[in-house]
Amino acid sequence: RDEDEKEKIKEALKRGNEDKAKEIAKRANVSPEEYERLRKEAE
């Protein structure tokens, strides 16, 4: 379940949809550090 959320965040970031990614991260309680890591992976 947690991994699904992280995949959704990465997908949103790949599409350049940072607002959606942040919204998912907030809902999934993803830490800022984890969010940054996902953002780097998505580049």
Rank of each mutant, 00 (worst) to 15 (best):
R1P: 15
R1Y: 15
R1K: 14
R1C: 10
R1N: 15
D2G: 12
D2R: 12
D2W: 13
E3G: 12
E3W: 13
E3M: 13
E3I: 12
D4T: 11
D4Q: 11
E5Q: 11
E5S: 12
E5G: 07
K6Y: 15
K6T: 10
K6C: 06
E7P: 05
E7D: 10
E7G: 10
E7I: 14
E7M: 13
K8P: 02
K8F: 06
K8L: 11
K8R: 11
I9S: 01
I9A: 03
K10E: 03
E11H: 06
A12T: 04
L13R: 02
L13M: 09
L13Q: 03
L13T: 03
K14F: 02
K14V: 09
R15M: 15
R15V: 14
G16Y: 02
G16M: 04
N17D: 15
N17G: 05
E18V: 13
E18L: 10
E18T: 10
E18Q: 09
E18F: 10
A21I: 01
A21G: 03
A21S: 04
K22I: 12
K22A: 09
K22C: 05
E23Q: 10
E23G: 06
E23M: 04
I24C: 04
I24M: 05
I24P: 01
A25Q: 08
K26G: 08
K26I: 12
K26R: 13
K26M: 09
R27C: 06
R27E: 11
R27Q: 12
R27T: 09
A28R: 06
A28Q: 08
A28F: 05
N29V: 05
N29K: 10
N29R: 09
V30F: 07
V30G: 01
V30H: 01
V30R: 00
V30L: 13
S31R: 05
S31Q: 07
S31L: 08
P32Y: 11
E33M: 04
E33A: 06
E33R: 03
E33T: 05
E34C: 04
E34M: 01
E34T: 00
E34V: 01
Y35F: 15
E36P: 03
E36Y: 00
R37I: 08
L38K: 00
L38E: 02
L38Y: 03
L38S: 01
L38H: 01
R39W: 07
R39I: 10
K40T: 10
E41F: 04
E41P: 01
A42E: 04
A42N: 06
A42Q: 06
A42G: 05
A42Y: 07
E43R: 10
